[in-house]
Design a binder for these strands. Structure first.
Length: 268
DNA sequence: AGCACA
């Protein structure tokens, strides 16, 4: 309607015009994620299973690789079946407090074996040549690292980051990411605690039933109910292994009426 | 802090 000419240069408003467009994939996007700052006190197999479960909310998980040696502990590589899924997982789960520690998620620098193998499978042929090449590249990479070319690579990465920042792909402030991660992610991954938190207790199931159910597990201390809130309760054990065992055994328990019992570790 | 898969 207005006959005003368009401004000769962009205004701050321009940036929000297409804000419902999906954000562009960063230039280093791949389908394998590098996760760090994992809680090292959690047993490796537990952590891998948890990560597989968590990331399956975003796509098919091809592999989870993690090690406990000095160099690799507290980190994991998670491969998803496509880049979009990996990117979504990265954005949404970044800084999620898994077992009490905020996961840092970025794209891995190289493809995982599982990812390469899947690509080959999709192409129909079982081109094992390509897989060999993939492994050779890895060896090459190690040689380069040994020679001290790491510094050169660091420089490149720095430039790359500057480039991306200039292109507007600036990481959102960490606090905002953490807040978003907390509200979008399920609450099943609180750090282990002697105290369990029960939800979805069906009508008619009282303290007595809960006591007989939970006292069957080693380390049981007591059940704490809340007046006026019959659908939730707390169960205390003497130690974390005991509470974890009971949780493992009874989470999802079906009383035969109403929802299945939901058990998480209580917040500290 | 730390980018692997034998």
């Amino acid at each position: 309607m207005s006959s005003l000419p368009p401004p000769p240069f962009g205004t701050p408003m321009d940036q929000s015009v297409d804000s419902d467009e999906p954000p562009p994939l960063p230039s280093d996007a791949g389908q394998t994620l590098y996760v760090q700052n994992l809680n090292e006190k959690v047993k490796l197999e537990t952590m891998k299973a948890t990560l597989a479960n968590l990331f399956s909310n975003y796509g098919t998980v091809l592999s989870v690789v993690s090690h406990t040696n000095l160099r690799m502990r507290g980190q994991a590589f998670v491969s998803l079946d496509d880049v979009k899924a990996a990117d979504k997982a990265r954005r949404e789960a970044h800084l999620f407090p898994l077992y009490g520690k905020a996961m840092k998620i970025s794209f891995a620098k190289s493809k995982s074996d599982a990812e390469v193998l899947q690509k080959l499978k999709d192409q129909g042929g079982q081109d094992s040549e390509e897989f060999k090449q993939h492994k050779e590249q890895r060896l090459e990479h190690k040689k380069m690292a040994r020679r001290g070319n790491v510094l050169r690579r660091r420089e490149l990465e720095k430039k790359n980051r500057a480039r991306r920042a200039a292109a507007g792909e600036i990481a959102e402030p960490e606090k905002a990411a953490a807040k978003r991660a907390q509200h979008e992610m399920p609450d099943e991954y609180l750090p282990p605690n002697k105290m369990l938190f029960l939800q979805n207790i069906p009508d008619g199931v009282g303290k007595g039933e809960l006591e007989s159910l939970f006292s069957a597990y080693t380390g049981y201390v007591d059940v704490q109910t809340i007046p006026g809130k019959a659908d939730i309760a707390f169960v205390e054990y003497s130690d974390i292994p005991s509470s974890a065992t009971a949780r493992g055994a009874l989470n999802g328990y079906n009383f035969g009426a109403g929802d299945k019992l939901k058990i998480t570790f209580a917040r500290a």
